Computed example of a mutant assay.
Amino acid sequence: MPFPDEPNTVALLDYQPQWRADFESLAGRLRDALGDHACAIDHVGSTSVPGLAAKDCVDIQVRVTTIDEARYVRLFAAIGFRCRPEPWNRVEISGRQECRKLVFAPPPGARRCNVHLRAQGGPNARFALLFRDYLRADETARQAWGAFKQRLALSVPDLPGYGQIKAAATEVLMTAAERWATETGWEPADQTPTVT
Rank of each mutant, 00 (worst) to 15 (best):
I67C: 05
G146N: 09
R126W: 03
F81V: 02
V62L: 05
I79R: 08
D59L: 04
E86I: 00
D133H: 00
A144I: 02
V103R: 01
W145C: 05
A54Q: 09
P108C: 02
C113W: 10
E98K: 03
E92V: 09
R63A: 11
F76A: 14
V58F: 12
L75R: 07
R82K: 08
F127P: 14
E139P: 09
H116R: 05
S94P: 00
R100H: 05
C99P: 10
E69A: 15
N124S: 14
I60E: 02
S94L: 08
D138Q: 04
R126T: 11
A110D: 03
R82W: 01
F104C: 14
F148Y: 12
D68W: 00
Q143I: 01
F148A: 14
A77I: 03
V58D: 11
A137F: 10
H116E: 12
V115P: 00
F127W: 01
K101D: 00
L117G: 05
L130W: 09
T140H: 04
E92Q: 11
A110N: 11
V62W: 11
A110E: 15
Y134E: 11
G121H: 01
G80Y: 13
I79M: 12
L135K: 05
R142A: 10
D56E: 03
G80A: 01
R118I: 03
Y72F: 15
Q143H: 05
P108F: 08
T140I: 12
V73C: 15
A110W: 02
G109H: 06
V103S: 07
L135I: 03
R118P: 15
P106K: 10
I67V: 13
H116Q: 14
A147M: 06
A125C: 02
V64W: 00
R96P: 13
G121F: 00
I60R: 04
Y134I: 02
F104W: 01
R82Y: 11
R111P: 02
F148I: 02
K149T: 06
H116A: 11
L102N: 04
R82Q: 11
K149G: 08
G95Q: 04
D138I: 05
N124Q: 08
